[in-house]
Design a protein around this nucleic acid. Sequence first.
DNA 1: CATTAAACGAGACGGTACGTCACGTCTTGAC
DNA 2: GTCAAGACGTGACGTACCGTCTCGTTTAATG
Lengths: 202, 202, 202, 202
Amino acid sequence: MEPVRKQTAAQTSSGGRPRSPRIHQAILKAAVDLVLESGSRAISMDDIAARADVGRMTIYRRWCNKAAIIMDAFVARVDPGTLFLPARSYTESIRLQMRSMAKAFRGKDGALIRALLAEAQFDPRLAVELRDRWTMPRRKMAISYFQRGIKDGLLRSDADPDAIIDILYAPIYYRLQMGTGPLSDAYVDEIFDHAMKGLRKV
Amino acid sequence: MEPVRKQTAAQTSSGGRPRSPRIHQAILKAAVDLVLESGSRAISMDDIAARADVGRMTIYRRWCNKAAIIMDAFVARVDPGTLFLPARSYTESIRLQMRSMAKAFRGKDGALIRALLAEAQFDPRLAVELRDRWTMPRRKMAISYFQRGIKDGLLRSDADPDAIIDILYAPIYYRLQMGTGPLSDAYVDEIFDHAMKGLRKV
Amino acid sequence: MEPVRKQTAAQTSSGGRPRSPRIHQAILKAAVDLVLESGSRAISMDDIAARADVGRMTIYRRWCNKAAIIMDAFVARVDPGTLFLPARSYTESIRLQMRSMAKAFRGKDGALIRALLAEAQFDPRLAVELRDRWTMPRRKMAISYFQRGIKDGLLRSDADPDAIIDILYAPIYYRLQMGTGPLSDAYVDEIFDHAMKGLRKV
Amino acid sequence: MEPVRKQTAAQTSSGGRPRSPRIHQAILKAAVDLVLESGSRAISMDDIAARADVGRMTIYRRWCNKAAIIMDAFVARVDPGTLFLPARSYTESIRLQMRSMAKAFRGKDGALIRALLAEAQFDPRLAVELRDRWTMPRRKMAISYFQRGIKDGLLRSDADPDAIIDILYAPIYYRLQMGTGPLSDAYVDEIFDHAMKGLRKV
DNA sequence: CATTAAACGAGACGGTACGTCACGTCTTGAC
DNA sequence: GTCAAGACGTGACGTACCGTCTCGTTTAATG
C-alpha cells in the first residue's frame, strides 16, 4: 500500500533540478480555491493543474490523489498552535475550544474536512492519513488536557478521556455532515452544558 | 432539482409491459452484495447490471444514481419496527436502543450507511434523501421519546431533545467513520452513562 | 497479435444497437481529409474524432490505430476495377496501367500510401494488412497478366513475373518516397521503355 | 527550418569544457543497438540516454531528433569507400555493387535505412538530410559510372542515368520495405539481368 | 596553479497524445 | 412499454514522451 503523498525525499539525495516550492504552494492554493468554489467532486486534476498553471504530471509527481492534495492543503491551513487557551476556568477553556472549532467548521475548513472525511470513507490510505495528521494530534492534546482535569478533581475520575472527547466533539462533526441544524455557538453551548452536567434529572 | 428515485408512477397509467418487481429486487441485492464485497466506489453501474443479469437501461429507468440504489437498498434492509423497546426502565430502553444501533453499524448496515453518508457530502439531492428517509424519521421517534421523558421528570427539563440525540448518537457515527476505536457495547455504555450523569465531578 | 481492425463481427450475433455505418464513413472521411491537410503524423485521434463529430471511444471501438483507420480509408478509396485496360497492344496496356498508378500517386492516394508504407515499417501488423489488402491483390492481377504475355510469346519466357513487377513498379514507389524527381508520365515512359528493351547496348 | 544536426561549431570559440567525443560515440552506439533490438519507434530518448549512461540534455545538445541520431549513426556506419569495384567487366561491376548493397540491406543497415526512410516520410527536414547525405552521394557516383558506360558504348545512348539507377536499385528498396520476398543475390541477379537485356521477347 | 565557462548527470517542468474507464443516453430486436 | 445488449458522446483518468529548464558537479583550456 503505497503512500498518499509521494516521497519528496526522492530527491533529497543526489542531483537533478529541485522541486519548486512555489509550484507546491500554487497547487495547494488552486486546489483549495477550486474545492471551495465548486466542491471537491466537481473538480478534476486538469482543473487544478490549469488553475495552478502547472502540468498535470507535476501534480502526479507529488500526490497520487485529488484527496491527497486537499489533505495537504487542509493540514497546511490549520493553525497548529495552542488548542486549549486559558480562560476564566478549566471547563470554560474547553467550551471556548469547542466554539473555535465550530467556527472553523462554519468556514472554509468545514468544507474541506467534509470532503476529506467523506473521501476517507472510500480510501483506506486517506483514512489513515486523516487520522494520523488531523484527528489523532488533536485527540492527543485533548486527552492530556482532560487527564489533567481528572487528576485535579475537576472531571469525574471514572471518565475515559476518549469518551469525553467523543461526547463533546462528535456532535460537531455530526451537524457538519448531517445538516440537522446550524453549527452555532448556541448549539455548542447546549452540547457542552448538557455533557457537563448530565442529561438525567437529579 | 429532479428526484433521486425516479417516479415509479411513470407507468401507473396505461398499457405496456409492467416493470418486473423481481428485477427490482435483483438489482438491489446485486448492489448491496457488490458494495459489501468491494466498496461502493470500486463498483460501476455495469458491475451491478452484470451481477443482477440486467440491462443497464433497466437500472437507469428506476434510479438515476449508484447512490440512489444503495439508498433504496439500505432503507429496505432496515427494520422500520419499534425503535425503543420496553426495558427495565425508561433510560435502560435508551441504552438498549443505542446498543442495537451500534450492533447494526458493526455489520452490513455500517458499510452501507458509511457509503451513503459520504456520498451525501458530495450530492445535495442524496443528502436530502438520506435526511428524509433515514435520519429524520429516527430523530422524530427519538424526540417524542425524549419529550415524554422530560414531561415525566426523568430527563432535565432544560434539555433540548435535539441536543440529547446528538450527545447520545453522534459518537456512534463518529466512531463508525473515524475508526478511533471499536463500536462495542462497552463503548456505547460509556457514552450513555457519562451523557446521563454528566462529565463534571459533583 | 491482435488484429488492426477490430472485429465488426463482434455484434453480428445477438442483440444490441448496431454500429452506425454513417459514423463509420464519417470517421474515414475525417481521417483522410485531415491526413491530406496536415499529414498523418501531425493529427491525433482527438482531431479525427472532433472532425467526424464523434466520441473517441467510438473510434477505438472499431480501430486500434491511427494507421488502421487510414488503411481502411485508403483501401475504400481505391477503385478495385479492372487494372489492365485494353489498349493498342498488350504492352501498351502495361504502360497505361503504370501511368494511371503514377497519376494516383501524384494525387491524394500518394499521400496516403506514403503514410501507410512508412507506418508499416514500424508496425508489423500494419505491414501484413498493407500487403494483404493493397500490395498482393495488385501483384496477383499483374502476375496473371504477365503470365499471359509470357505464354503468348510477348515477354521473355525466362522472366519471373515477380521480377517484372518489381522492375516496372518499384521505381514509382521509389520516386514517391525519395523525391528524387517528379512522378511524371515522361518518367513512367522512360522506365517502361528501358525495362522493355533493356539497358545494354545491343 | 533549423538543421537536424546541431552545430558542433557552437563551441569552436573560447573556453569551457569541450564536448566529449567518447560520449558522442556512446550515444550513437546506444541508439543503433536499441533500434536493432526494439525498432526505432519503440524506443525513447530516455531509453537512449539510459543505455548510453548519459543525461538527456547531453543528447539534445547535439541532435534535435531521435531520427537525427539514427541518421548520424547510419551514415557513420557506411563505408564511404569505392562503390563500383573493378570486376570481370563493366557491367559485372554493377551487379557486384547491387549485391553488396543487398547484403548490407539484409543486415543491420537494412533496419536502419528502413527506419530512416520511413521517418523521412513524416519529417521534411529529415528527408532532406537523407537525400543529401545518403541518397544523392550514391546516385552521383552511380551517375558518373553510368555516364562512362554510355560514352564507352556499353549502355544505350538514349538511357537517362537517373532512370537506369531507378530500374536497378528501386527494386532493392521495394523488397526491403514490402517484404514481398527475400533480398537474395538470386533476386538481385534476376533484376540485373532483365534490366540489362530487357523484358520484351526479341 | 587558480579561474572560468561550458559540458555533464539528474530530474523537475509545461505540454500533448495516448488508450481506458465509467457515465448516462440512445437505438436495435425480442417479448 | 419493458427488457438485454450494446453503440454512442462525453469527459476524467493516469501514463508516456517530448523538448526545455535548472540544479550541483566535473573537466579541460586559459590566464
